[in-house]
C-alpha cells in the first residue's frame, strides 16, 4: 500500500494523468469505481475515479480546480499520497448490449475509459462522443480510437471535430446507428443535458455522479442525491445512476455549497505557491 506516484503525465492544461502504486486497489478495482485520496495530514478527502487498472497500480486523471487538486497536480513522480482508500462505489453494470454510445467531457473522459474497455470485453460496438472546450482538452483520444467503432469529437470553439456540444454528437450517432444503451460522464451540466437528450431518444443512459463527498462509505450523507424521487447516497448506491431519473438541478446547487470556502482556500494557497503557469 505504498501510494507512490509511479508516473505522472500532462494531458492538457491543468490536467494530469497519474499512476499510483497500490496493490490492494489494483487487485480489486472494477470499471466505474473510485478512490478517496487524502494528500497529507491536513488534507481533505477527495474522490477520484479509477481510470485504469494495472498489476500493482492504478491510474487516475485529475483536473486542478481547487486547493487539493492543485496540490495533487503539483506532486512529482516518486512522491507519496498519505491515504488512498478504495475501490469504492459499485462497478458499472456491464454485459453484452450490442451498440453502446459513450459520451465524455472534460476529465469525465478518463472515467469513461475503463467502462469502454470492459464493454469491449463484452463484445459491444462502441460509438464514442468526446467533447472539450477546445482541441487541447479532448484527452485520451488515441486510447479511445483503439477501442471504438466510431469516435466523434465536439469542441466549443470548433478547433477540433464538430463545433458544438456533445449532445450534437449524440444526435449524429443516433442518426446512423441503433443504440441500445448509453453512458455519459463529464461535468454535471453536461450529464444533465445528455440525460435530457437520451430521454428524448428513449434511450437508457448511465451517468456517474460527482457530488461532494467526505468518507465515501455511506457514513455521512454528504453525497445524497435525489434519484427517482428517492434519497440515494452516491458513494454506496452509485456513483452510476439512470440519468433520466436524477434531480439535476438539486445536484447542481449542492455542488456549489462550499464555493466561498473553496475560493478562500485556493486563494490562500495560490498566494504561497509561486508561479503556476506551467501547470
Amino acid at each position: 500500500m505504498s501510494n507512490r506516484i509511479i508516473k505522472k503525465t500532462k494531458l492538457a492544461p491543468q490536467v494530469y494523468d497519474f499512476v499510483v502504486e497500490n496493490q490492494q486497489i489494483a487487485s480489486r478495482a472494477k470499471a466505474g469505481q473510485f478512490v478517496v485520496v487524502r494528500i497529507d495530514e491536513k488534507g481533505e478527502r477527495i474522490p477520484l475515479t479509477i481510470a485504469d487498472i494495472y498489476e500493482d497500480s492504478f491510474r487516475m486523471v485529475v483536473r486542478a480546480v481547487g486547493k487539493t487538486t492543485y496540490q495533487l497536480c503539483m506532486k512529482k513522480e516518486n512522491d507519496f499520497l498519505a491515504d488512498v482508500i478504495g475501490p469504492l462505489g459499485n462497478p458499472s453494470e456491464i454485459e453484452h448490449f450490442g451498440n453502446v454510445m459513450l459520451v465524455g467531457g472534460g476529465v469525465g473522459i478518463a472515467t469513461l475509459l475503463p467502462i469502454a474497455k470492459e464493454l469491449k470485453n463484452h463484445d459491444n460496438k462502441l460509438f464514442v462522443v468526446l467533447g472539450g472546450r477546445s482541441k487541447e482538452y479532448v484527452i485520451m483520444l488515441n486510447e479511445f480510437e483503439k477501442l471504438a467503432d466510431q469516435v466523434i469529437i465536439t469542441t466549443d470553439d470548433g478547433s477540433m471535430g464538430i463545433k458544438g456540444v456533445v449532445t450534437d454528437g449524440m444526435d449524429l450517432v443516433v442518426s446512423k446507428a441503433k443504440i441500445d444503451v448509453a453512458w455519459a460522464v463529464g461535468p454535471t451540466v453536461m450529464m444533465k443535458f445528455c440525460s435530457l437528450k437520451a430521454k428524448e431518444m428513449n434511450l437508457k443512459i448511465w451517468v456517474s455522479l460527482n457530488p461532494i463527498m467526505v468518507d465515501g462509505t455511506g457514513m455521512c450523507g454528504a453525497c445524497r442525491v435525489t434519484v427517482d424521487g428517492q434519497m440515494k447516497f452516491a458513494c454506496v448506491d452509485g456513483p452510476e445512476f439512470d440519468g433520466t431519473k436524477v434531480d439535476w438541478d438539486e445536484l447542481l446547487v449542492r455542488l456549489v455549497q462550499y464555493r466561498d470556502e473553496e475560493e478562500q482556500s485556493l486563494k490562500k494557497f495560490l498566494e504561497s505557491a509561486g508561479d503556476l503557469s506551467w501547470l
Binding site: 491536513k42 488534507g43 481533505e44 478527502r45 486547493k67 487539493t68 467526505v214 468518507d215 457514513m219 455521512c220 450523507g221 454528504a222 462550499y258 470556502e261 473553496e262 478562500q264 482556500s265 490562500k268
Partner: peptide, 24 residues
C-alpha cells in the same frame, strides 16, 4: 447536515481549523 457529516468534518477532518486544515 446530518450530525454524522457535520461532526466528521469537524472532528475527523478538523474543519474547525479551516483553512489551515483543508476540509470546510
Amino acid at each position: 447536515y446530518s450530525a454524522n457529516e457535520f461532526l466528521t468534518r469537524v472532528n475527523l477532518m478538523k474543519a474547525y481549523m479551516f483553512p489551515e486544515y483543508d476540509t470546510p
